[in-house]
Amino acid sequence: MVFIFTALYAEAEEIIKNYALKKLRNMTKFTLYGNEDICLCVTGSGVMRASVGVSAVLAKFSSPEDKVINIGCAGGNKEGVYLCNKIKDNIFKRTYYPDMPPKHSFKESELITEKNVWKGDKEDPCLHDMEASAVYEAASFFVSPEKIMFLKIVSDSNGENVTKEDIRLLFKNNFPLVQDAISLFLKKEEENFNFTDTSKIEEALKCTVTMKERLKRIARYLDIKGSSIYDYLPKELECKSKKEGMKILESLEEKI
């Protein structure tokens, strides 16, 4: 699942429309939009709302395999769409580094997260937003750094008043690039290996916690080698005591 977080509905509208995301009601305090692969949340502006939104959604729905994208507008002295490789928090004075995809077609930039709307500085090469550092900090509790991505579209260079309609148009015009970024994270990873469930053997051998760990380790090793723990076990498994179970376990360890 890819979780997308935007600050404003105007930043999310094209994504909702093009991926046919349906409104998911009463799931969290935040309105969510989703399909089989994507869950989108509009958090509201600023680090506090972003932090609460990401935490609320990921705590309830995410697993470590999921991915997180923060998509939104940014101020800056350059035009275009950027993947951000360094997120500097101007409020708490911390810096975060998401792992970057090795291959992509985007320009990259440093991004600074501000408390208020950035007022512009002609010498500044960075982009400025109001949510990214909070998204990173909150998301990193749930997923690893290569599963967090920041895509920013430059909307203004001096904090000038940008209307919702301007943002909606900006995202509509740049939607192919937004789609490319989402695609980077939508690629399916290799299917996980299914390891043998040892719970029935554990029960039959009357395993202690330590014995269970040893048994699982052997089963996993044999699975990877392409054989099965059942090929090495006696047909009659039921033990009267853990001592008997231990004997079977030890003979198993000798055989492999």
């Binding site: 580094y97 792992d99 990193s140 997923v143 690893s144 750094p145 290569e146 599963k147």
Partner: peptide, 9 residues
């Protein structure tokens, strides 16, 4: 950094 994915890196 915490929680890095060594296999992917």
């Amino acid at each position: 950094r915490k929680g890095q994915n060594i296999a992917s890196q």
